[in-house]
Computed example of a mutant assay.
Amino acid sequence: MSTRYERIESHDGESFDAYCAVPATTPAPGILLFQEVFGVNDNMRGLAEQLAGRGYAALVPDVFWRVQRRFESKDESGLAEGMTLAQQLDHALVAKDITATFAHLLAMPECNGKVGGVGFCLGGTLAYLFATQSRVDGRGPDAVVSYYGSAISDVETGSKKIDFPMLFHYGANDPYIPQERVDEVEAAFAGHADVQVLRYDAGHAFSNWDAPSFYDKPAADLAWSRTLEFFAKHL
């Protein structure tokens, strides 16, 4: 496995960074990994490296770059600043940046042409944005996983744009996402045989080992094992 930073060209002539981890044997399926409000930090880099160790070419775009480049925080100490940055995001521009990253990954020699996506918290919302809006030459992703995306909305409309496998992970005790919201996601995708909505006896951000007050190892391990099985099946 090797790691580096890739420079992504945006639609408006600017550029931004994405952390990249690729396996020893390529070409391989690609995965876009979407950050939490803590930025592209040790947790995100570690997840990218885990994916590369499993045989995927992983790319983690810096979605905060239009507000503050390369922001990262190791733990809850950066939560307030990260939330402030997240509130300044223009989601229409973020969607374009995600599509640019998608196109970049498809063009990388290490990618075999199949691409999945996975994101956590803010990234869970961005993974849904990727699933519903990102298309390159008419094609979308092959499989997407969303962990507790608190700003996922309009799922009834969004579900009609998804014709590929998708997996949602939620904490049943999440104080930021009412279970009624999870019920709405579940209902919107009830007719999609290849979409699953899973709930865990955990709170918000339960998979983030860099945030001890949120981390729930049993739930995190179970969700990650299911995520890896999902990608192994569909990518």
Rank of each mutant, 00 (worst) to 15 (best):
A21T: 03
A21K: 01
V22Y: 03
V22S: 08
P23F: 04
P23S: 09
P23V: 02
A24F: 02
A24C: 04
A24W: 12
A24G: 12
A24Y: 10
T25H: 15
T25K: 10
T26F: 10
T26Y: 08
P27N: 00
P27S: 00
P27K: 00
A28M: 06
A28H: 01
A28G: 02
A28Q: 08
P29G: 03
P29A: 04
P29Y: 08
G30F: 11
G30M: 05
I31R: 01
I31T: 13
I31H: 07
I31Y: 04
I31Q: 08
L32S: 06
L32W: 05
L32H: 05
L33Y: 06
L33G: 10
L33K: 11
F34V: 09
F34E: 10
F34L: 14
F34T: 08
F34G: 07
Q35L: 14
Q35I: 13
E36H: 11
E36V: 12
V37D: 05
V37R: 04
V37A: 14
F38Q: 15
F38G: 15
F38M: 15
F38W: 15
F38R: 12
G39F: 02
G39L: 07
G39A: 09
G39N: 00
V40Q: 10
V40E: 00
V40D: 04
V40C: 06
V40M: 08
N41V: 11
N41Y: 14
N41G: 13
N41I: 12
D42H: 14
D42E: 14
D42T: 05
D42C: 13
N43Q: 15
M44I: 15
M44K: 13
R45Y: 12
G46E: 09
G46I: 08
G46K: 06
L47I: 09
L47K: 09
A48K: 03
A48Q: 01
A48S: 07
E49T: 02
E49P: 00
E49A: 04
E49H: 00
Q50G: 07
Q50Y: 05
A52D: 06
A52K: 03
A52M: 04
G53Y: 00
R54S: 06
R54I: 07
R54N: 10
R54K: 15
G55N: 02
G55I: 09
G55Y: 04
G55Q: 09
Y56V: 03
Y56N: 02
A57Y: 06
A57M: 10
A58H: 05
A58C: 11
V60C: 15
V60R: 10
V60W: 08
V60Q: 05
V60K: 11
V60I: 15
P61D: 00
P61R: 01
D62F: 12
D62E: 14
V63N: 05
V63W: 05
V63H: 10
V63A: 04
